[in-house]
Amino acid sequence: MDLYFLGTGAGMPSKQRNVTSIALSYVDERGGFWLFDCGEATQHRIMHSPLRLSKLEKLFVTHLHGDHIYGIPGLLASRSYHGGETPLAIYGPKGIKHWIEITLKLSQSRLNYPLEIVEIEEGIVLEDDHFSVETARLEHRVDSYGYRVKEKEKPGRLLIEKLRNLGIPSGPLYGKLKQGLDVDLEDGRKLAAGEFLGLSTPGRTVAILGDTRVCEASLKLAENADVLVHESTFASKLHDLAFKYHHSTAKDAAMTAKKAAVQTLIMTHISSRYQGEEEEELLNEAKSIFPNTFLARDFWSYAVPSKKAKQNK
């Protein structure tokens, strides 16, 4: 599981930072990637990255400000030309469906794949065999959401030799045990699944927040996360400006990370006023509160560390 930052700027693009888009790559789990927000020229950034547009499976939109959505129409159209034929799902606040549909209609764009658009509310918006995605409304000038992506625990491998030594041939019983289900044999023996599975691996949690002031929803989504991606538009000396425009400072992001007991903080959505050495002001400010902090840059990636396997109960 890797985070790949395609755009890390705030408001408008600069020579150093494009507007917001973050990829969550899960090649080992599913063979593709998800996007969180899609600012203008995101498809161009993907062309200069290890990602393949045809492998995009889902797009999660935090809010409807232009620097987070203006890249969507072009990306959707280009996905067809890049060989994308598998279904694509888009999740976002109310209004995203109308905006995308009218844009595609007026531009006469034709997609070669099924497109599903889901307008979200707070709660679980997606759950499958590998992940669940929970969202909550943050505090911004428009409806803005954060996403909590939780990887499900990976069960340990089935101890086949142990089963064979007990005279149990392969078959449907193996599948049940692999799923963690206890089995009653016809001869009266009971097989506890935990005794026939190797060490399981706990899932990882990544919280990716949209634009926001400090709020309780941020803490809820970030609680005990392995990685928190938090906007850090300004340094704390511009706190009043950040508050006025419903944004966060580097200090705000660090305080949220500390209170939520996350493992790693990654700051993004950086104002274009911070260039070169001025960026260090943001990083140093955050690290003084939460040492394990990184300042994202365009085309920078972060591998979310795997967790240690644990014994099944």
Rank of each mutant, 00 (worst) to 15 (best):
I22K: 02
A23T: 08
A23Q: 05
L24R: 11
V27S: 13
G32F: 03
G32K: 03
W34F: 15
R45N: 08
P50L: 03
P50A: 06
V61E: 01
T62N: 11
H63R: 13
Y70E: 15
I72H: 04
S78A: 13
S80I: 08
G83S: 09
T86M: 09
L88M: 10
K94M: 13
S107H: 12
N112G: 14
P114Q: 11
E116P: 00
E116Q: 09
I120M: 13
G123F: 03
S132I: 12
R141S: 15
Y145L: 00
G146H: 13
Y147K: 09
R148G: 00
R148M: 00
K152G: 01
G156C: 00
L158N: 01
R164V: 10
G167H: 08
L181T: 12
E186M: 12
R189G: 09
F196Y: 15
G198K: 03
G203K: 09
V206P: 06
L209F: 00
D211T: 11
D211H: 07
R213E: 08
A217M: 08
T233H: 03
L238R: 13
A253T: 04
T256G: 02
K258N: 07
V262K: 00
L265G: 04
I270V: 07
S272T: 10
L282M: 04
F290L: 00
N292K: 06
A303N: 09
